[in-house]
């Protein structure tokens, strides 16, 4: 078997002003071809205005076992959400 084309993760900005979102992956010999392939594979239905590709091996990911320490502490910080504060209706939009 010859050398397989590397795997790339594809991120697409769906509309102007939106963030890039992960849409899937594909294979390509290099970044330039990965962008072209992403255009052909993932924007066939007019889904994008901008494409990012990252070779999959370069993505660093958090570990599932650290889920508790990473995310649960923020659950108790309810005061970070606007609904925590009661503002009388008379004050108007805020």
């Amino acid at each position: 078997m010859s050398k397989e084309w590397p795997l790339w993760e594809v991120f697409i900005r769906g509309q102007h002003g939106m963030s890039h979102r992960h849409v899937g992956s594909l294979h390509a010999p290099d970044a330039e071809m990965a962008i072209k392939n992403a255009r052909d594979v993932y924007t066939r239905r007019n889904e994008g205005v901008s494409i990012w590709v990252v070779e999959a091996k370069h993505i660093a990911a958090s570990s599932p076992s650290e889920k508790g320490p990473l995310y649960e502490p923020s659950e108790s910080k309810v005061y970070r959400h606007p609904t925590f504060f009661d503002i009388p209706d008379d004050v108007g939009a805020m």
Partner: peptide, 11 residues
């Protein structure tokens, strides 16, 4: 030769 090319050629 490869799926990505198949899709691109069809486009």
């Amino acid at each position: 030769p490869v799926l990505e090319e198949d899709i691109a050629l069809a486009n």
